[in-house]
Structure formats: C-alpha cells, structure tokens
C-alpha cells in the first residue's frame, strides 16, 4: 500500500499553507516530517488523510485517488494519531483502544473475536495491559499517549500517520514511543510522523522530509537532510547534524 502526494497545495485566506508539496510513503518505511512551527506539516498530514480541501494536487493510495475511496476503505488503509490528546467522557483505556476497530465494524453488532485480538495486540505493543480498566482521563501524559497510540495501532492499517506523537513526553517515553513506531515499520507498516526532536529523528527515521514555509525543501536519508545549510534555512539556527544518542535499553536499570 503506497501513499503518494503530488503538487499538493492547500491555502487559507489567500495564503498557501502547503505549497506544491510532494511526498510518498511506502510499506515498511519510518519517515519523519520535520520543519519549524507553521511550516505546514500538520496541514500536509491532513491533506494526506483527505481531511482538508486541496486547492491543487493529487493524493493517491496505490494509484487510486483518495477522494474516490469510500470513507471506510480509507479508514482501514490509513490510521491517524492526531496531536489532540483529549478523550471525552470517562472511557476506559480498553474502550478507547477498541474505537480503533471502528472501520472494521458495522451496524449494531458488538466486537468480533478478530477485533478483540487486534485490541490485545495493540495494547501489548504499547505495554499498556496494566492500564486497561482505568479511565483515560486520569492517566498521565505518557500513559495517555501510549493508549491513544494503541488506538491507532488497533486499526491495523498498512499506513500510519502520527502528528507529533512524542510531543510533551519525557525522554524515556519519547524513546519508548519511537521504538514502538520503529517496530511497526519493521513489521511492514508505512509510518509517517511529524517530529520536532531532530536528534531522535536522526536516530530512528529511515528518511526525513524537511518542510519550510509550506514547501518540501529536502527529502532523503537523515544525514542528507540535516545539513547545516538546510538547518540554517528552515530553522534559522546554526547547527551540525545531531550526534547519536543512547538507546532505550541503556535507560533501564
């Protein structure tokens, strides 16, 4: 399952938020979408989901125009983890993860054994078994992110888009979430994540896409994207490519 965006332009009030952007996401890839605040990363992500109206360009899934796909087929193909971590009502972690099975269910029937197995796999992937019966509203930020990530994983879609999945997490949880995303990619899922931490991006991502002012200005392996010239242009900072940082296992006593 391959997602491709060509010449995508999204504008609001006459200003282009995403300007002639092009990107692709293939199975098994872990791709980081980086760029300064306001570069158009989240808007591009929404355009890839078909959740925003494009002014120009095409988004295709295996060559089929995304807009021509039924909502359910699209929802089964692309899972999405938004930046918004709010959960209304006092739903338990289990109930929230089960919502990831929405595109696979129909009518008034309850969850099938296949749904329950997918939920169990998703919860195991984020090591969230201990949280199942607790309301998500009382979980800590790290626990809540893991449960919402499990919700996105429970879709078991071949593609996963995540908008800042590690924002507002401590270093341990950042590494934990990155390792979960990496494991997903290794299992054959195409993962595209908006990320601000360039060190983690360099360490984990197979490929980086750098955006600035609505345009994709670099796309390739981390070392070729995180050059001093690109960093200066996009972030207006002088810098060198980030050094390697320790893996999660070395944090665990």
């Amino acid at each position: 399952m391959k997602l491709e965006a060509r010449n995508v332009t999204v504008s609001a009030r006459g200003r282009a938020i995403v300007d002639d952007a092009r990107l692709s996401l293939a199975p098994g890839e872990l791709v980081g979408l980086i760029g300064p605040n306001g570069a158009g990363k989240s808007t591009l992500l929404r355009a890839l989901l078909g959740a925003t109206t494009r002014d120009a360009g095409t988004v295709t899934l295996n060559g089929t125009d995304l807009a021509s796909l039924p909502a359910q087929a699209r929802a089964r193909a692309i899972a999405f983890l938004p930046q918004d971590r709010r959960v209304e009502w006092r739903l338990t972690a289990h109930d929230v993860v089960m919502l990831g099975r929405y595109p696979h269910q129909a009518g008034f029937g309850g969850p099938t054994p296949a749904d329950r197995e997918a939920v169990a796999r998703a919860i195991a992937a984020v090591e969230g078994e201990a949280l199942l019966d607790r309301p998500v509203s009382v979980l800590s930020g790290g626990e809540r992110t893991r449960i919402l990530l499990a919700r996105a994983l429970a879709v078991e879609a071949p593609l996963l888009l995540a908008d800042e999945p590690i924002a507002a997490l401590d270093p341990y949880h950042q590494l934990h979430v990155m390792e979960i995303l990496q494991a997903r990619a290794r299992s054959g899922v195409g993962v595209l994540a908006v990320i601000h931490d360039l060190a983690l991006a360099a360490r984990f991502m197979d490929r980086l896409i750098l955006m600035n002012a609505g345009r994709v200005i670099a796309n390739g392996p981390p070392a070729s994207v995180l050059t001093p010239e690109n960093l200066a242009q996009a972030y207006r900072i002088a810098g060198t490519p980030p050094a390697r940082i320790p893996s999660l296992t070395s944090f665990i006593p």
Partner: peptide, 24 residues
C-alpha cells in the same frame, strides 16, 4: 438517533480522529 449511535462513540476522541476512522 440510533443510526448515529456508533459514530457518537468515535466522536469521543474528537472530530479529527472520528473522521480518520471513517465517520462522516
């Protein structure tokens, strides 16, 4: 109202997530 029941569950996660799950 009953035809919208399942979509209301998905809306617990916000409109963006609900739409990504296929809710119209």
């Amino acid at each position: 109202l009953l035809l919208a029941a399942r979509a209301l569950n998905a809306l617990s996660l916000g409109e963006e997530t609900a739409a990504s799950l296929g809710v119209s």
